[in-house]
Design a binder for these strands. Structure first.
Lengths: 352, 352
DNA sequence: CGACACATTGTTATCGCTAACATAGCATTG
DNA sequence: CAATGCTATGTTAGCGATAACAATGTGTCG
């Protein structure tokens, strides 16, 4: 009688399952871990006992003895933004599908101290790997100072000796945008970029330049913004006063939204007076006034690739300690996600 | 010599710290856990040893013996949307500040099976509490079937005997919106709501009704949408053909964006012909054409409150097993976050 | 000054699991 | 048929922390 009570009182452990199945607890462990040498009959027996008891293996005990936590730390910032939040989604999905837990730490502000904190948090937890979804430059540098002893994948980075990187081919994306403009007949194509030094900013500027050069055009205005609609609006107001270009490539959709409003208020007609191409292709872009032509990438796929890359690493054991550091050549084969141009109503041939 | 090598080979454990500080490992544990009866001198000694060795406590071992995982499971869906993603941010922040790890599981699709899966994932992990950030109705019902043995807080729910809830006072938000319209002189105020049965949808419809009733007005058109800009656009196109109202309260900003585009294309002037109020006040709303009047809430605060509520629970031990179930009266004191109306350029007095 | 309370520290016993080794049974082989 | 190798299972020993209890030392009090 009292035994029954006890059983209800505390969760069943491996020994309970073993007793019920008439085997040793080790055999139960073997069934749970899919070891090869277990007879089908025993396996069935054990599985039945597990089901009957509603047994769940104690993860803490397992982690203690295996020295693995089965969890991946995801370091994020700006996770309420379209790109990062979708990347996060992809990361979580892929990680859980692979049997890992996902521990999240969001950076409210991207400072060395905050990064340090969050990584410390992950180390305390003994994560098996870290995915960094922080589109800020310098993050990688901070991480380098941290002496992290688990595999790490950084989104947006192209990878280096120590860390792996997964990124969207942003230069290509920018070229897609600018080529489209060139094909429409534009010859003076300005660019409203992101803040200086961001990886994304630089790559997009580069694409703009390369595309221009490829078409034999000289650079027009290059302005830098801060990604916000507010900034797009202010810049748009300035620009409207004295248009020296017929097309504008804006580094993200939010700034483009601001520009659109500013132009609207200033009487500059889009696309008649000036064509605009955005970047990110967030769902709302299709409903801007007018609907925005934009370059989009599959951010979820990006997230999935992060995990793929990380697990490829983790699978090969402590690859980080060993030769990887010397394999600088690996940086070039960082997987790149290809962006796509979605043409809508903000682009047309330049005014006559 | 070999000892030195060993020390580098494996992470230091409590015993190493103890040896170095000249105390027992238990004393080290006491220092780490802030036990009262440790002499300041010893404490300093231990802390010095910890720092010198770069010691980090093994969480798995601790979890095993304390039967606590120090982690909170966060179940989310639509985490790339403005509201949920910010709530998530608030949750993560507050949880980490309270010394908890945050394990995330994102629902790609909100089905009983997916919820089941994710919760099972959390149970495997032995989370100390669960926060549910899933704005879909029926989620709670599914959770009720799951026999969860840790405290749980559901965002958007008003709480019941078994679970706690934290929500925005959406009825109030809707009333704020409609009252504003009434004060401007509108008498025929339509509502484009969210999908049927959503908690949010119902509360906002209720607020719209109550506000109308309070002003002695009869209900105008009530249409239901699906939150998307696309749907707002289609509905807007319909509506534009035959305007039977002078003001439209839209249940979220994205649908409002679609409506704005549809009206623009149809030649319906906002706000001259019809006033529009949105809901959520996402940052972009200020840059819609024209800038959208909207009702906003502090979603991060909502997230923080979730943790607050959860930890209040967790603190009192296994409150769930005990009397809580009978305390149905507690449902009324669910903390409500108060929304605010932000007036911009889509609202004005009705046409003469 | 002996007794008792209290602050401080040490010792031992788990927590629930997996790794490593040990053992038994059975088929194969020269 | 003894030797060998495999398969299937059991036994034992930790993983690294905290809990519970034991053992000190120190000060106060009658």
């Amino acid at each position: 009688m009292s035994e029954t009570v006890q059983r209800q009182a505390r969760a069943p452990v491996m020994g309970d399952v073993a007793k019920r199945a008439g085997v040793s607890h080790q055999t139960v462990s073997r069934v749970l871990n899919d070891h090869p040498n277990v007879s089908p009959k025993t396996k069935t027996l054990v599985e039945k006992a597990i089901a009957e008891l509603g047994y769940r293996r104690n993860i803490a005990a397992r982690n203690l003895v295996t020295r693995k936590s089965q969890t991946i730390g995801v370091l994020g910032s700006e996770i309420s933004q379209y790109g990062p939040s979708n990347t996060l989604l992809g990361v979580e999905q892929a990680a859980r599908a692979a049997g890992y837990f996902v521990s999240m730490a969001a950076l409210r502000e991207v400072t060395p101290a905050a990064i340090h904190d969050a990584v410390g948090h992950f180390m305390d937890q003994g994560v098996d790997g870290v995915v960094v979804v922080v589109p800020h430059p310098g993050t990688i540098d901070v991480l380098h100072t941290l002496n992290i002893d688990v595999p790490l994948v950084a989104m947006g980075s192209s990878g280096d000796g120590e860390f792996r990187g997964v990124a969207v081919d942003q230069r290509l994306g920018a070229m897609l945008a600018v080529n489209h403009l060139v094909e429409l007949g534009h010859r003076r194509i300005a660019h409203l970029s992101g803040p200086a030094n961001w990886i994304d900013t630089d790559a997009r500027i580069q694409g703009w330049r390369d595309s221009l050069a490829g078409a034999g055009l000289t650079e027009s205005v290059l302005l830098s913004g801060d990604w916000s609609a507010e900034c797009g609006y202010r810049t748009g107001l300035q620009l409207a006063k004295d248009l020296s270009f017929t097309a504008l490539f804006v580094a993200n959709d939010q700034m483009a939204l601001g520009v659109l409003l500013a132009f609207h208020e200033s009487g500059v007609k889009v696309p008649e007076d000036v064509s605009i191409v955005g970047y990110d292709d967030q769902p709302e872009a299709a409903y801007f006034i007018p609907p925005l032509t934009s370059v989009g990438a599959d951010f979820e796929e990006l997230g999935r690739r992060c995990i793929e890359s990380l697990l490829g690493d983790a699978g090969s054991g402590a690859a980080v300690d060993a030769g990887t550091t010397s394999g600088l050549g690996a940086s070039s084969d960082a997987p790149l996600v290809r962006p796509q141009l979605i043409v809508r109503s903000t682009t047309t041939a330049p005014p006559a």
